[in-house]
Computed example of a mutant assay.
Amino acid sequence: MPHTALIRSHRKPRRNASQTIAMRAGVAGGVIGTLAVAGASAYSANAAEPVTQTLELPTLTADVAAQIAQSADATQQAAANYQLQAERDAAATKAAKQAKSDLADAKKAEAKKKAEQDARRAAAERASRTAERTVLAATASTGSSTSSSTATGSAAAVIAFVKAQIGKSYVLGASGPSAYDCSGLVQAAFKQIGVSLPRVSQSQSTAGTQVSLSNLQPGDILYWGSAGSAYHVAVYVGGGMFVGAQNPSTGIVERPLSYDPPTGAVRVL
């Protein structure tokens, strides 16, 4: 027998795989059991003593407070501006309506004033024409004006010419010799004595010196309408009579001044 046969080996006996697995499982089970007991104890302790948690709200800083105050002021200012603008718009609308009303009233007043002025002017013209008719009728009846028989020189030649045209036709724009209009007859009468006159009535009414209807002389040019804007002309032939191309219905005729009193007269001779 060898000398080492009675001496125990110093090596640990080997465990087989089954033993290792069983040991590990036991250790794990012990750890899990320990954790479970600890958890149960902690739960019991928590259940016995409820935990109170305190939430701390953030504290407003001075900058945030200032921004909030500034935003509130801006909102209030915007509201005030809106109200002010609304008041201004309302005032502008009211002023526009009032201005429109005032303008309408002013136009009515102006129209009324113009109508009154026109009425007074028409009345004055009627009175003036009535007075002229009276003067011309008196002149014709008394024969105080110079008659055509006593006209001499150029005036007599003008009168002779216009009387020679009596009975001819009135044609607008005609200058003779078979037909005339009013200014064409007057121009032709003075042309044959060497006096050049404008062609139209408006210009002929200012071609000479203005004379009063109460101081007419044979050969004067009579006009109807205003000087410079006359619409008809004829030649005064004396004795309260005139010769003119009146209209297409009558042609060239001799008529008393009272038949159609002229507005004025000019003297070119």
Rank of each mutant, 00 (worst) to 15 (best):
M1E: 11
P2C: 05
T4M: 02
A5N: 06
A5M: 05
L6W: 07
R8T: 09
R15N: 06
N16R: 14
A17M: 11
I21V: 11
I21G: 08
I21E: 13
M23Q: 15
A25D: 13
A25M: 13
G26I: 10
A28L: 14
A28N: 14
G33C: 12
G33I: 15
V37P: 06
Y43S: 15
A47T: 04
A48Y: 04
E49T: 15
P50W: 07
Q53M: 12
T54R: 00
T54P: 02
T54F: 00
E56P: 05
P58L: 07
L60N: 05
A62L: 04
A66E: 04
I68K: 04
S71A: 15
A72I: 02
A74R: 07
T75Q: 14
T75M: 15
Q76I: 14
A78C: 06
A78T: 02
Y82D: 12
E87K: 09
R88I: 00
D89I: 13
A92G: 05
K94I: 11
K97P: 07
S101M: 02
D105F: 06
K107V: 00
A111N: 06
K114L: 07
A115E: 03
A115M: 10
Q117C: 08
Q117W: 14
A122Q: 03
A124P: 03
E125G: 02
R126H: 12
A137V: 13
A137Q: 12
A137D: 12
T142K: 02
G143I: 12
T146Y: 04
S147H: 04
S148E: 13
S149C: 04
T150Y: 00
T152N: 04
T152Y: 01
G153C: 07
A157F: 12
A157G: 13
V158A: 14
V158P: 15
I166V: 14
G167W: 07
S169L: 07
V171A: 03
G173A: 12
A179K: 11
G184T: 06
V186Q: 07
A188P: 09
I193F: 12
G194A: 08
G194F: 11
R199Q: 01
V200S: 06
S201N: 12
S205D: 11
T206N: 01
A207P: 03
G208A: 01
T209P: 05
Q210A: 14
Q210G: 12
S212R: 02
N215L: 03
L216G: 07
Q217D: 01
S226N: 15
Y231R: 08
V233Q: 05
V235R: 02
Y236P: 01
G238A: 03
G240Q: 01
F242E: 09
V243A: 06
G244Q: 05
S249I: 08
L257T: 03
S258H: 08
Y259V: 00
D260G: 04
L269Y: 00
